[in-house]
């Protein structure tokens, strides 16, 4: 590519909006993903994405009844509402910790996606509309979409970074957080809610079926190398921005789907990072992990010790 082509790409309003959306989503999604991985809920984003499709469809249906132009003007608000409700329900099921909760979640996820597909057709949507929600349509981001994305990304980053220590405390050791009087339930719901908001903004970039990848894969890459929670989050966020932007730029010249390109790129980065880890990781200094410890177990009876070490003394009294 030449300099002219780069300038042309950067001056295209369509591409400017798409790049901005990619940066915002690429930065915000892994911040939420870090909390989800720590809570062992890496697939939560996936579940919310399924439920959000029904929200998209309901928004569309309401839009077409109200004769709004365009018909899908309420798709994003619908997705926000459904995703937030879905994430709160998932969090309630998790809190109760029942085994039947597993089945409840499965019912919700598949009901969500099937209901969404059905309702979009009822509302007069085409297969192309459906595909754009399932797999992303970043190249058609409108100015309104961009405002939604910017506002929601600001909320997600504000909560995720501003309350980072509190959300860490709750995600790391819920029992201790309760014994500290922290509002555990509110904070857990907050994590679920910002996960839901992230799903709805990432929907445009990578699509509802791949939303979770943008939240989780950068975290998986970062934790291969990072030693702390804070650095994992920062590295994951940077990785998210880089793969989103690079993936998007690739699709400017090649006719390939942006969402899938971004996710495949992220998975490739993970594979390379994992393969290079043994070679790249700072070598741990070889040292006694417990220099302050006595070297051996305390032997209760020194006489026994001596007898084991020395030749038995024939003069010693027999035991």
């Amino acid at each position: 590519m030449t300099m002219d082509q780069v300038v042309e790409m950067l001056t295209s309003p369509l591409m400017q909006r798409a790049l901005l959306a990619a940066v915002l989503v690429g930065a915000a999604a892994p911040v939420v993903g870090t909390f989800l991985v720590q809570r062992r809920m890496a697939l939560m984003g996936d579940g919310i994405g399924h439920v959000a499709l029904t929200g998209v469809a309901l928004g569309w249906l309401v839009g077409s009844w109200a004769n709004l132009v365009p018909q899908d003007a309420l798709a994003v608000p619908g997705a926000v509402v459904a995703a937030v409700i879905g994430s709160v329900v998932i969090e309630l099921v998790r809190e109760r910790g029942r085994t039947s909760g597993d089945l409840a979640l499965a019912l919700m996820f598949y009901g969500g996606i099937a209901g969404g597909v059905l309702l979009i057709k009822v509302a007069g949507g085409t297969n192309a509309n459906l595909i754009s929600y399932l797999f992303g349509s970043i190249s058609t981001v409108s100015t309104t979409d961009l405002w939604w994305t910017a506002a929601l990304a600001a909320v997600v980053l504000g909560v995720g970074l501003g309350l980072r220590t509190a959300l860490f405390a709750v995600s790391h050791d819920e029992e201790f957080a309760r014994a500290s009087g922290l509002p555990v339930r509110v904070l857990s719901m907050l994590v679920a809610t910002i996960a839901a908001l992230t799903v709805t903004i990432a929907m445009r970039v990578v699509g509802l079926l791949l939303v979770s990848a943008l939240m989780i894969v950068p975290v998986a890459i970062a934790q291969l190398y990072a030693r702390s929670f804070g650095r994992t989050m920062a590295a994951a966020s940077i990785t998210g921005v880089v793969v989103s932007v690079v993936g998007l730029v690739l699709t400017y010249w090649q006719d390939i789907p942006p969402g899938a390109t971004i996710v495949v790129l992220a998975v490739l980065v993970y594979a390379v990072a994992a393969a290079l880890r043994p070679a790249l990781r700072r070598p741990q200094p070889v040292r006694d992990p417990h220099p302050d410890m006595v070297d051996d177990v305390l032997l209760a009876d020194d006489d026994v010790d001596e007898m084991c070490v020395d030749e038995p003394d024939p003069a010693a009294p027999s035991r």
Partner: peptide, 18 residues
């Protein structure tokens, strides 16, 4: 869990309460 955390981060979280 999957995400690493340092001793300093864990101890710092003890400063939050109520």
């Amino acid at each position: 869990a999957g995400v690493p955390s340092t001793a300093l981060e864990v101890v710092t979280s003890g400063l939050l309460h109520g």
